[in-house]
Design a protein around this nucleic acid. Structure first.
Lengths: 249, 249
DNA sequence: AGCAATTTTGCTGTTTTTTGCAATATATTT
DNA sequence: AAATATATTGCAAAAAACAGCAAAATTGCT
């Protein structure tokens, strides 16, 4: 049997069943497992499949189907995410909110860092799948079409039974006096639950949102432990937040 | 024997069997293997076939599916999804499983159809977000990196409190005798829960998976109400499934 | 036909690729 | 922690590819 034939068969099996065991394939094709191992290694190098311990899995099952429409103010948001990332410790149990800034934080997590990440954002969950050492737990519920996050009573209930070391959240609007506010009532409910479930709450917020407000209130500004913007913590724009018991980063 | 004649024979063999061994051809045409090697080299240079170690393979064998991250057997799966789609009624409460076939079903749902869709697959949920009249509910839990679906005890518990009109599921392996089986135990647990939560269970399954099995059992074949393959329901390959109380589509 | 030039072919020895095996190391499970 | 499964590495045998060479066949020419 030609090598190409064998590799074709392996790919076929992987595509068909999404995952295969090296031993199974070696058995089926009647060659040594070393040969299969080498084949799979090659196919992996060619990006035809992904080699995992003991077998191989289809790319379609693992590749981050990332539609890269560009994020607004990406640079600022990446800067914020980097500051937030510095708070992460090996083995932490954290929550990552939806929104593009939080998505950047998820993207930033390095391969070797071991974390348990809760989220209710579909894009964040997708992003976290590519991190081998991150345990991803999705808090389910009715998915909001625009925010792409789970909302509703069951989500709130589920959240009430968890404690995160850190909750990294975004917000629609923030004001030193009126606190965090949102346009959408459902989203406020889950954000409240997240803050409640977080030992420490970290707000990721681009400076453009400072001193803006809307209809529904999530929490007072004091409920936030750390606020991260893309600005230098000493920046004058942050003065109004200095009176409160908030860490500025 | 003329060189040209020989090369024509080689090409013929390659086209017929998709591959050929140099030794076989040399034997068959009763010339030295070096001659065949040189012939194949020329044919390769002319792009009539592809020379590989030990033999040659047909171009059609490699080119069409080679740089292809797309869904395997997309056409078949779309066909299956179309049949499944015909079962959907306005206002139904359904469940859509993970996997590429089920993802096709999600993709097929038209804009105007009003549905309540439960899922535990991140890609399916993402897909459903683009359907304005579909209520998307994600059943949360620990996300499996490979399958990109929620698994674990909380997922199973959540599912135990729901009833779907239809549960559209896929499977890793299916056999008329051994039923639905999987490679992964965790996945079996949630699939069991899904079947339990479905008034009617519809299996979406490409015919290549028929009569295959693996380690962990999801359910007997009788637990399935309708099985959809890309084949005509009268096809002989489905004979083994006719004794059972299954609708074939 | 005769003959030289060219091409084709088979042979030889050498190099490269492929494969399986065994020993060791690493990962995973119990 | 031990026990098991999987990976990695080095090695050797076998198969295949390659390069060079010379005999044989083919071709083009007179």
């Amino acid at each position: 049997m030609l090598k190409e034939e064998r590799q074709r068969t392996i790919l076929y099996e992987v595509e068909l069943h999404n995952r295969v065991l090296l031993t199974d394939i070696a058995d089926q094709l009647d060659v040594s497992i070393d040969t299969i191992r080498r084949d799979v290694k090659e196919l992996d190098a060619e990006n035809k499949l992904r080699k995992v311990h003991g077998g191989a899995i289809s790319l379609g099952f693992t590749s981050p189907a990332a539609p890269n429409y560009k994020t607004y103010a990406l640079k600022e948001k990446t800067g914020i995410a980097e500051k937030a990332f510095a708070l992460l410790k090996e083995g932490s149990v954290i929550f990552i909110d939806g929104g593009t800034t939080c998505l950047e934080l998820a993207r930033l997590i390095p391969e070797r860092l071991q974390l348990t990440c809760f989220t209710l954002s579909l894009p964040v969950a997708m992003q976290l799948l590519s991190k081998p050492n991150v345990d991803v737990i999705f808090v389910g519920g009715r998915i909001s079409k625009d925010a792409q996050i789970a909302t509703g009573a069951s989500t709130v209930t589920d959240l009430s039974e968890i404690k995160f070391d850190y909750g990294f959240i975004g917000t629609g609007y923030v004001d030193s006096l009126h606190g965090l506010t949102e346009f959408d009532w459902d989203i406020v409910q889950v954000k409240k639950a997240v803050i409640n479930a977080s030992k420490k709450t970290v707000l990721l917020c681009i400076s453009e949102k400072l001193n803006s407000q809307h209809r529904f209130k999530t929490c007072d500004i004091n409920a936030i432990n750390t606020m991260i913007t893309e600005l230098d913590p000493a920046n004058n724009l942050l003065n109004l937040f200095r009176n409160h018991d908030i860490h500025l980063l």
